[in-house]
Write a protein that binds this DNA or RNA. Structure first.
Lengths: 331, 331
DNA sequence: TCCTATCTGTGTAGCGTTACACAATGCACC
DNA sequence: GGTGCATTGTGTAACGCTACACAGATAGGA
C-alpha cells in the first residue's frame, strides 16, 4: 500500500481512504491512487491485515460434523447450509466451512479459523470439536442441541414431533419398528429392540427416539419389544439392508417410523406385505411417494442459526414442524 | 497474548512457541503458559494476525455463481462443492464460500475475502465477479471455462460428450428437441428454434449446445428446425412447463436431449407419446428411471479444481465422461 | 581449562492496515 | 481582517503475531 502511496505521490492514509471512504478524498487524488494501483497491480487492502485492524473477520464459521462427506451427502444438511449461506449473502459476510473429521487436528482448526462466530450442525454432546468451538469465546449456535452454557440452540421440538408421527404410524400396528439415524459416534449399523433413548449420543436422534417411545407407550406398546434399525447415514442403499434385517428379525412387521424420508422409502421398497410408514422432512421423495412425514424447513433453521450467530434475535423454531398425513399411513 | 506472557512470567515469544512449536519450550514453561491461558480465557493465537504475519490464510475461496440459491438447489453444484471440501479437509484448509449475486458489492467481496486462491463454479464469460477474482492476483481455477489468461481450466469436453449423447438420442428421431440450461445471465425461460451456440453466455451450456448441433448435423437434421427449450434452473417443476411449451410448438416431438437428468425426467413425465430422452450426470434419477445419460463426476472435478488451486498438478478431466445407454433411448 | 554443541528464553522488527487527532487550506460571513 | 466551518491531506500508533538473531546456561569432549 505504501508503494501505491509513493507512486501516486500521496500518503498511505489517502490510499486507505480511497478504498474505504472514497468521499473523504478529492476526485483528483482518487484518480491518482487508482492509476498507481492499476500500474502496480494492487488489488486493494489486504483482508488479513484489515480484519486484524478491524477486530472482526466478517465471516461465519460452520462446523458440519465429524465427516464432511456425510454432510454433503445428506440433502437436509445441504438445505441447512443453504439457509446459512442465504443469510451470509444478505449481510455480505463470508461463510467458512471448517473441515473436520480428519483426526486430532480438528480442534486446532476450529480454534485457528478466522471467523467471528460458529454455527454447529447436529453433533454429539461430547464432540471435542464442539468443545473447541465453545472454548474460542466466539458466539456458538448449535443446531439441534446439545445444550451448553453460552450457546444458543435452534431446532424443532423433535420429541414432540416424533411423538405425533409415532402416534400416526403406530396407530393400528401390531409389530412396529423404527429406522433410526446413528446413535453413537462410530455410526454403528445394527438392529436391536428397545433401545434406550438416553444412551443415544446425538441429541436430535435421542429426542426423536424418545418421541417414538412416548407414542408407543401412549398406545400401550411395549417399547422393549420394538426393534430399532440403526443406519450409519441417510442413505437408501444401506437403509434397505437394515430394513431386510428388521424384516428377518420381525417377520410380520407392519409399521415403520423412519427418521428421514429416504429411510422411509427404503422401508417401503423392501416391504413385501402392506406397511405403515412415516418419514421425516417432507422432501420431494415424500411428496412423490405419498409418505406421511414430519415437515420442517432445515433451510429456515439454517437461516435462523446464522442470524443468531450474528447476534440478532432469531425466531423460535421449536414449534416449526407439522405432521403431514398421507397415504403411507392410510390417508 | 502479552497478557498471558505476563501472567505466566515469561516472554511473549515463549507463549508463541508454546502454541506453534511446543518442543521448543521446556515442559515447565509450557505448563505455566497453558495455565495462564486457561485462567485468562486465551484460546490461542489470533487467526487474522497469524495469517497477516504468515502471508497466507490457508483458506480456499469458492465463488458459486450469480445466486447462491441456484447453487445449493443444484445437486451437481453441491457435488462439486463436496469435492472441493474433501480436498480442503485433507489439507486442513478452510473453505470460504464467497456470497455473490446480491449486487454491485460482489466484486468487493471477492477482492476482500481472506483466501489464498479461488475456485469458480461455472459462470458466464463476462461475469464481473470472475474478472474481480482474476484481478486479485490470486490463483484462479475455473470449472468449465471460460478460458482466461492466468487461470486454470477444469472440466470435461462438453461438446464431445453432447455430440455422443445427441447421436444416441437423435438417432431415429424425426422431431428432436433440446432442453437446455440458461443461455444468458438473466436466465430467461423460452422456447426457440435453432439457437446459435455462439450466442450462449455460459461456456458449459454453449459447448453442450454446440455438441447437440454437431450430432444433429451428423444425422442430416436441420438445426434451424430444432426447438430449444431453455430452463432458468435445474428444476423439474419449471422444466415440465418448458416441456409443455415444446410439445405445444412441436406436436409430434419424438426425442429430447436434456442437459441434466432432472430436465430429462421432466420431459419424460410430460410426454404423451413415446419419446427418446437423454440426460446428463448419471444421477440417482437416471438410474432409477433408466435414462440414457452422460456420466461424469462433479465431485472429482471439484476435487481437481481445489487441487489445482493449491498449485498442485490436477488430473486432466477432459475425457472423464462416458455415455451410459439405457432404455430411454431404446437400449 | 577451553572450545563447541545443545537447549531454552528473550528482544527486535515488521507483516498491512486504519482510527484518531491534527494541520493546512479555502471559503463565507459579519 | 478576524472568526467559524467544511474539506482534504498527513503522521502516529496500534491491532496480535512470529521469523530471526542472539544471549545465557549447561554439558561433553579434548
Amino acid at each position: 500500500m505504501s508503494d501505491v502511496a509513493r507512486a501516486a505521490g500521496v500518503s498511505p492514509m489517502t490510499v486507505s481512504y480511497t478504498y474505504n471512504q472514497p468521499d473523504r478524498v478529492s476526485a483528483e487524488s482518487r484518480a491518482k491512487v487508482q492509476q498507481a494501483a492499476a500500474v502496480l497491480g494492487y488489488a486493494g487492502p489486504d483482508p488479513s491485515a484489515r480484519s486484524l485492524r478491524y477486530g472482526a473477520t466478517r465471516t461465519l464459521g460452520v462446523v458440519l460434523g465429524e465427516h464432511l462427506t456425510y454432510a454433503f451427502d445428506d440433502p437436509q444438511a445441504v438445505a441447512f447450509l443453504a439457509g446459512i449461506a442465504e443469510v451470509c449473502a444478505e449481510r455480505g459476510c463470508g461463510l467458512l466451512i471448517v473441515p473436520t473429521g480428519t483426526g486430532d487436528d480438528d480442534r486446532n482448526r476450529v480454534v485457528a479459523a478466522a471467523v467471528d462466530a460458529y454455527v454447529v450442525w447436529t453433533t454429539t454432546d461430547d464432540d471435542p470439536v464442539l468443545a473447541a468451538a465453545c472454548g474460542t469465546r466466539r458466539p456458538v449456535v448449535i443446531h439441534g442441541g446439545p445444550d451448553r452454557d453460552g450457546t444458543t440452540l435452534v431446532g424443532i421440538d423433535n420429541r414432540a414431533a416424533a411423538r405425533a408421527a409415532g402416534a400416526e404410524v403406530f396407530a393400528t400396528a401390531r409389530r412396529p419398528a423404527v429406522l433410526s439415524f446413528p446413535i453413537d459416534r462410530n455410526r454403528h449399523t445394527f438392529v436391536r429392540c428397545g433401545v434406550d433413548p438416553d444412551t443415544v449420543a446425538y441429541p436430535v436422534t435421542r429426542d426423536r427416539l424418545a418421541g417414538y417411545r412416548d407414542a408407543a407407550r401412549d398406545l400401550g406398546i411395549d417399547w422393549s419389544q420394538v426393534p430399532v434399525g440403526v443406519c450409519s447415514t441417510n442413505d437408501m442403499a444401506e437403509a434397505r439392508t437394515v430394513m431386510r434385517q428388521l424384516l428377518a428379525s420381525t417377520p410380520r412387521l407392519d409399521a415403520v417410523a423412519a427418521m428421514s424420508d429416504h429411510l422411509a422409502l427404503a422401508a417401503l421398497r423392501e416391504a413385501a406385505s402392506p406397511l405403515r410408514v412415516s418419514g421425516w422432512d417432507d422432501s420431494d421423495i415424500a411428496r412423490e411417494h405419498n409418505l406421511t412425514t414430519v415437515a420442517q424447513s432445515l433451510r429456515e433453521q439454517g437461516a435462523a442459526c446464522a442470524t443468531a450467530a450474528f447476534g440478532d434475535p432469531a425466531p423460535d423454531h421449536r414449534g416449526a414442524w407439522r405432521l403431514v398425513r398421507r397415504a403411507s399411513t392410510g390417508g
